[in-house]
Amino acid sequence: MPMAVGAIETLSFPTVLASADAMVKAAAVTLVYYGIAESGRLIVAIRGQVSEVQTAMTAGIAAGEQVPGGQVVTYYIVPNPPENVEAILPIHFTEESEPFRIF
């Protein structure tokens, strides 16, 4: 079954934390990546069914924008990334994320 990926990039840790928290609480998704993007921005990525990722992203963006001084810089959803993208980019399920995977 195709798994979508969604990513949100923010300017601060509290913003990325609020976004990640809201996403995993709003829909059946798994957090698969968190890291520092260029210019010290923070990024969080989730995986799940397309409709679940869309719901989670909406909640994550809204939560991030409500953080005092927080800013969601950009976000994007890829409905069904090809194997090549999954193999190269850090969006696959890892040993750390596998226990939380929702099928």
Rank of each mutant, 00 (worst) to 15 (best):
G64V: 13
S97D: 13
F103K: 02
P90K: 01
G60R: 06
E9M: 04
A87P: 06
A56S: 03
Q71T: 13
G69H: 06
P14S: 04
P99G: 09
F13S: 01
G70D: 07
Q49P: 06
Q49D: 11
Y76F: 14
G48M: 00
E65F: 00
E52G: 04
T58N: 12
M23S: 02
L89C: 12
A45N: 07
P14F: 03
A7L: 13
E96H: 08
P79I: 01
A4N: 08
E38G: 06
Q54D: 11
G40L: 09
P14Q: 05
A18C: 12
S51G: 05
A7S: 14
A62P: 06
S19E: 12
Q49K: 09
T15D: 08
Y75H: 15
I36V: 13
E96N: 07
R47C: 09
M1L: 14
V16I: 15
P68R: 00
A27L: 01
N84L: 08
P90G: 04
R41S: 11
A63S: 10
A22T: 07
V44M: 04
V85W: 01
M3K: 11
M3Y: 09
R47Y: 07
N80H: 13
G48L: 01
K25H: 10
E52P: 05
I8A: 03
V78G: 13
V53D: 06
V67Y: 02
A37E: 03
G6D: 14
A59P: 07
Y34F: 14
V85N: 03
S19V: 14
E98H: 00
V73H: 02
L89W: 01
A18G: 10
G6R: 05
V44G: 02
A4H: 11
L42C: 12
H92C: 11
A26K: 09
F93G: 03
A4K: 08
S97Y: 07
V24F: 03
A28P: 04
P90I: 00
F100H: 13
N84I: 10
R47M: 11
E65C: 01
E38A: 07
V85E: 08
V67F: 06
S19C: 12
Y33Q: 13
A7F: 12
P81S: 04
P99S: 06
Q54G: 03
I91H: 08
V24P: 10
E95N: 04
A56W: 05
R101T: 14
Y33F: 13
T58E: 15
I8L: 10
L11S: 13
I102R: 07
N80R: 13
T15K: 04
E52Y: 01
E38L: 08
L11G: 14
Y75S: 15
S39W: 14
Q66R: 05
I61H: 02
T15M: 09
A18H: 06
P90R: 00
N80Q: 12
P90D: 05
E38C: 03
A27R: 01
I102G: 05
S39V: 15
A20W: 04
R41D: 09
I8M: 08
T10W: 08
T58P: 00
S39K: 15
L17V: 15
A28M: 00
A45R: 02
M23Q: 02
M57D: 09
I8N: 03
Q66F: 00
I61M: 07
